[in-house]
């Protein structure tokens, strides 16, 4: 028999939760703490090297599962993958309204550095992105709620848009870091 821990389980199964987009976040957090209580390397501080290595692997997997299930975007991506409607490199956004909004946000971000108070300007851009992201998250929820193949295609489009928003938020963070460093 080969040494094998249950890495074949999907994350929903690992956390003992039903597969689906709707998720009881308090229950998720509770299960997360319980699983870490069972597998964290600190529980094996006196154990053998092997046990500690296994514990590091398992605790890493529990952490990764928690990260994915906790975030609506990561959870949606993961679900679509599980259901075989995952995203690949060829997916693009063809919604003209969204493409326009995307350009405007980029421009606003590019203008931050030249504005009178860059930190205030940056905060405004961030607020705007976060507001749009919340609206997309609501759309995503209702698409998963529906569950028809067409709705799942909509969910996939939402995921693409939200990924773009999150990339922009990363850029906001980098710009902020740069502004801080520039004093």
């Amino acid at each position: 028999m080969s040494m094998q821990t249950d890495t074949a389980k999907d994350y929903f199964e690992l956390f003992g939760l039903p597969v689906g987009f709707e998720l009881d976040s308090e229950l998720l957090a509770l299960r997360y703490r319980e699983l870490q209580q069972a597998v964290h390397p600190d529980r094996f501080a006196g154990g053998t090297d092997l046990e500690r290595r296994l514990a590091v692997q398992q605790a890493s997997r529990v952490n990764e599962g928690y990260r994915i299930l906790r975030s609506p975007l990561a959870r949606a991506r993961y679900l679509l993958e599980l259901w075989g409607v995952g995203l690949d490199d060829t997916n693009t956004i063809s919604d003209p309204g969204f493409l326009m909004a995307q350009m405007e946000l980029r421009e606003a971000l590019a203008e931050v550095r030249g504005s009178r108070d860059p930190f205030v300007a940056l905060a405004a851009v961030r607020d705007d992105i976060e507001r749009r992201d919340r609206i997309l998250a609501d759309e995503l929820r209702s698409a998963f709620d529906d569950g028809s193949p067409e709705a799942l295609a909509r969910a996939r489009a939402c995921v693409l848009k939200m990924q773009f928003m999150h990339k922009l938020l990363d850029e906001v963070a980098i710009l902020e870091e740069d502004l801080v460093h520039e004093g």
């Binding site: 821990t5 003992g16 299960r31 319980e34 699983l35 209580q37 597998v39 046990e51 296994l54 398992q58």
Partner: peptide, 9 residues
């Protein structure tokens, strides 16, 4: 390790 995960749940 597997048993302890099962037990936690």
């Amino acid at each position: 390790m597997n048993a302890s995960i099962q037990k936690a749940l």
